[in-house]
Simulated scan of single mutants.
Amino acid sequence: MKNRAFCTFRSLLHENPLGLPRSGSRNIPEIPRRARGLPQKQPIQNVSKIIAVSSAKGGVGKSTIAVNLALAFARQGLRTGILDTDIFGPSIPTLLNLSGEPRLSESQQLIPLTNYGVKAMSIGFLTAESQPVAWRGLMVMKALQQLLYKTDWGGLDILVLDLPPGTGDVQLTITQEVVLDGAVVVSTPQDVALKDAVKGVTMFKLVNVPILGMIQNMSVFTCPACNTNTHIFGAKGVKRACENLDIPFLGNIPLDADVCADADRGKPSVVSQPDSAVATSFMSLAEKIKLKIGLKSAT
């Protein structure tokens, strides 16, 4: 277990300055938050734009997409950060090849770790790699709020929130308390993944978060030996879902063994293969998202 930063972090969890929403409710309340005695949505200090990357389904490559998008923003000259909001299964430390305990600022805020020009914060920096976070919902929500509001980002053009699977407490806490500029939903073309992705889209609509669009991951596999294209999980499932939901289709990311290998070794494709077709796809996706949220590349 980590020492000073983690102990300070745990002590902060006993505070609840923001007021937690009730968990377990089946419907999202229509009564304004202020009338319910809850705080208004608030921005994250020194962060210009915030987007959430979600899938509502595990195993579809959402964290890999989120990291490569963050790296693409950084390559385009934006001051970029990524926040791992998955308390139980953080992926960002592995994907960005980061480890070690964050330092604390003079104001007792966590200072993000940095690699490849992207600032990152994750509960994984505060616990041992093999140590499970065995917390109940209330502790998880408090931990999330501290990661959101007790991190010193030092000035960002864009912060990417990597959301965990599902549409539960973490997602509702973020969408009801953070000023989000939009959400990106990731899915494979497979029906079993799309059904959960559609639930995620519906959740964002219910809480009035702008949906920037959907990304189809693992869209096609190109055999390296014969150059034959195979749609292992189906061909156009995400595009059809976007048409049915009346939301933008942002683009495709192929099923590529190198993308997986790059992620596992902590050097994502946008960094390790900057001139590759898949890196170009991520750069194009980043450009589309920037336009949708009104961000310009640094000159």
Rank of each mutant, 00 (worst) to 15 (best):
K296F: 03
N227W: 02
I253V: 14
W153Q: 08
G19L: 07
P39R: 15
G89W: 09
A279D: 01
M218R: 08
R22S: 12
V160A: 09
A120S: 09
Q273V: 00
L95W: 05
V198E: 10
F9Q: 02
N217W: 02
V270T: 05
S99Q: 10
V278S: 05
A225P: 00
S23I: 13
F125K: 03
Q76W: 04
V192G: 06
L144C: 02
A241R: 01
G58Q: 08
L98V: 04
V118Y: 04
A70Y: 01
A257T: 14
L159M: 04
A286E: 06
A197C: 08
S276E: 01
G294I: 02
S55E: 12
P39M: 15
K296V: 12
C223L: 09
A279K: 03
L255R: 09
C223H: 06
A193L: 04
S269W: 01
T167Y: 11
K290L: 14
L206Q: 13
G124L: 07
A298T: 14
E30V: 13
A261S: 07
F233Y: 10
L163I: 12
I174V: 15
I82S: 06
D191W: 08
A286N: 02
G58W: 09
V179K: 13
K150R: 12
M283V: 14
D258T: 14
L212F: 08
T114V: 07
L194A: 07
R26H: 13
R22K: 12
V186D: 10
D162N: 09
G154P: 02
L104Y: 05
G200L: 05
Q76K: 15
N27G: 11
K296R: 14
R75V: 00
R240C: 00
M203L: 15
L163Y: 11
M283A: 11
I31V: 14
N97M: 00
K195A: 14
T151H: 01
K236R: 12
T222A: 08
H231V: 01
I28E: 10
E243A: 13
A261C: 00
K199R: 15
T222N: 15
S99I: 01
S105Q: 06
K267G: 01
L148Y: 03
G213K: 05
N3M: 10
